[in-house]
Each structure stands twice: as structure tokens, then as C-alpha cells.
Design a protein around this nucleic acid. Structure first.
Lengths: 202, 202
DNA sequence: GCGGCTTTCTGACATTTGTCATGAGCGGCG
DNA sequence: CGCCGCTCATGACAAATGTCAGAAAGCCGC
């Protein structure tokens, strides 16, 4: 029984190399490749793969968003996410989106092939190290608005601009930022942004 | 005549896959692999490759630093840098370090193989798109001190901390930051940091 | 040595941020 | 219902930041 695999990664070099390696496994066949989120979706619709191996960061729509659409459209297709930068929050988002596997790109090709089989069989696989990170990072203490405002503050915009973009009064924005900063134990909004980023809370 | 290649990338999956793909070219042979900067250096010393294919971001020492050491120790070994995120400044640094090739990971394996041969023959190859970016980004308008202070400000530290770490008075730090901000046309230090990062000036 | 340059500092000022108290409105939960 | 937490707001104050003018010290070239 062969497993039909969809491969999505924006880096051509990686994607091609990966396809070549997976082709060495005689029970796996790469039926489609994609370089962006939307393309991955289109390919999945066209080729109905058993397992979709998605890069987390892709132009268009990231791996998790693609996974969400995929679960709705192709319930039979299991999603496995592969990533270079494993932030705890990404893992959490991915799991919530119905992703069955989540591994860093540091695994070997053999391991990946095994994990593809595991996922195809309906089981889950999460890299132990990433799982440990996610658990130790815990849940976000931020409320929805705090996270939203913090995100708008991420690129260094002044309060006035954040207020405008969030349709809030400047005073309110400062209050949210202040509480976010204190919840995160940061010195100022910018370190707060950095911390939240590291823990995957934004 | 076969080209002896050293492959360095911290992502096991990528490295293995790449090795497999390059092995398909019958004039290329991967004589060593490394997962970190120091390891790449050690491997190069041990195996004397003709071309070193280095990832830009690696633990230990980044691709450019490895390239610098390599040029000193093995003048016969040409360096080719491969990267996911092509910032203009990286390219400039790399070229200054004597790197002969600089390509994004979006190229195909065939292209990469060709480029390896190009580089091995003593020619240079720089991805046209990255080159265009680098040219349009131009030279940094920042003085050495401005860049230094801006870098220390990068993680959101308050002025007092920057002053201490740079052994400057707080007032001086603010002056440098102010002039850097105005030179970059930014609204505040944080957008300035972001802009300088994007252009590769820090 | 003089003029020009950079580096470094100081002091003063306006603006922006961070912090706090306080309050109104709303939705959920026991 | 009453309580609690989230949302949104205002006002006031302290602290940090941004901006500017001015000035001492050192270095380089002529």
C-alpha cells in the first residue's frame, strides 16, 4: 500500500531535495508539489493526497492556515507540518487546526518517512523537544485585545497609530500595552513583543 | 574531473536531501557534511574540499564567518553561500569575506549544481534578484557608532542599559539614536532598527 | 598651527510612554 | 441576582525618549 504525499515548501531547493529523498522509500509517492499556501490547497484538491507535508512559513498562507482549509475540504488527508523555527505557539495553533504531526527540519529523512507513515495511519506525532518547549511556555496570559494591540505595536508604531488601526482611544491602547507588559514581566512594550513572539503568543 | 563538495547546514533534513541530490550529478561528490559553523571548519580542514556550500544561518558561527576563516586556511577552497532569507547586507558582507557565490534556497538543484561548477572554476555567481536588492539598498548612511548603538537598541533595551553596555553617557546614546533615526527616516528607534535590519545595515 | 571632522558630553525642552486610579457597560456563571 | 473578568474610556502624574544647541577633546591633512 503506497502513501500519496503532497509536498509544500517555498524553497525549491529543499522541496526538490525532499521529494528525491522520499522517492527512495518505496511505499511513499510524492504526487504533487507546491511553493505557496494557495498552491498547496489547489494541488491538494487536484491530487487528493493521503498526507500533506507543509512548511510552516510559506508565502500566501502559512502552513497552519492551509491545514485548517484542508481539514474542511479533505477530511481524509492528514497534515504534517515541518518547520525550521519551532515556536511553542505555532505548535499549539497547529494542533488546534487539526494537524497530526509537527516536526523540526532537523530530523533525518528516514525519521520523516516513518513519521509520514505514522500520521497516515491516523496517529499523531509531535517532536518531543518542541512539545517540551510548548508545555514549559504554557498558555498565553494575554487577553484577546492585549494580544491584538501588542501585535500592532510589533513594528514600532507609536501609540497614536496603533490606536487608529485598532479603532481604540490612545489611552486605552496604553492601558492594554501596560497590562501586557506587566503580565509578560517585560521592561517596555518592545521587549514584551519580543517575549510574546518567542513564546508564540502573538 | 570531479568536484569535492563540503555541505554545511544545521537542518539535518535539508542537508541529507541536498547531499542525495548532488550525488546524482556524476561530477560532484559530497565529501563531508557539517551541522554547525565550527564543525564545517573542522570538516574542511580534514577533507580539503574544492567547494564549500554553506548555509548562512548556522549555530556556532554563521556562513560568512566560516567563509572568512576558510579563505585564510584553505585558499584553494571556494565558498558558496546558500540562504533562505536574503538580506542585502548579508550579501555585501559575504562578498567582502571572499565568498564566490551567493544564492537563495529557491533555486533548483540543477541550478545549484551548475553554480557549484561555476564557482569551482574560479568564477563568481550572485543571484540576480539578491544583487538588485543589494544595489537598491545602497550603502549604510550610519557611522560606526550609530550602527553600534542601534544594534544595542535592537532588543528593546532602555537607553540606560545601552549606555552602560556601550560605555557611553546616556545623553550621547540618545544623540546617536536620534541621528540614526533621522538618517533612516524612521519615526522612532524601533522602526529604525527594523529598517536597518531589512537593509542589512546592522 | 589652523580648520575641519568625528566623538563625546551636557543641559534644556517638548513629546511620548508607562503607570495608576477610577468608572461605565457588558456578558457569563454560580 | 451579584460577582467577576473583559472592554473601553478618562485624567493625572512620573519616567523615558526625541530633539536641539552648544562645547570640549582628539585626529588628520595642509
Amino acid at each position: 500500500m503506497t502513501v500519496r504525499v503532497l509536498l509544500a515548501d517555498d524553497e525549491h531547493l529543499i522541496r526538490g531535495a525532499l521529494a528525491a529523498l522520499l522517492a527512495l522509500e518505496d511505499d511513499l509517492v510524492v504526487v504533487a508539489e507546491a511553493a505557496s499556501g494557495p498552491e498547496a490547497l489547489a494541488m491538494a484538491r487536484a491530487h487528493q493526497p493521503d498526507v500533506a507535508v507543509l512548511d510552516l512559513q510559506m508565502p500566501g498562507a502559512d502552513g497552519v492556515r492551509v491545514a485548517t482549509s484542508l481539514r474542511a475540504e479533505l477530511p481524509g488527508c492528514q497534515v504534517l507540518i515541518v518547520t525550521s523555527h519551532g515556536r511553542p505557539g505555532h505548535l499549539k495553533r497547529a494542533l488546534a487546526a487539526g494537524v497530526r504531526g509537527f516536526v523540526p527540519k532537523t530530523v533525518s529523512a528516514q525519521r520523516l518517512a516513518e513519521i509520514i507513515r505514522t500520521v497516515q495511519a491516523g496517529n499523531r506525532y509531535v517532536d518531543p523537544e518542541l512539545a517540551a518547549d510548548a508545555i514549559s511556555a504554557g498558555d498565553s496570559p494575554l487577553t484577546a485585545r492585549e494580544a491584538e494591540v501588542l501585535e500592532l505595536a510589533a513594528d514600532g508604531a507609536p501609540v497614536a497609530e496603533i490606536a487608529e488601526r485598532a479603532a481604540l482611544s490612545p489611552g486605552t491602547v496604553r492601558n492594554y500595552l501596560s497590562s501586557a507588559v506587566s503580565k509578560l514581566g517585560a521592561e517596555n512594550r518592545h521587549t514584551a513583543v519580543r517575549l510574546a513572539r518567542e513564546r508564540g503568543w502573538v
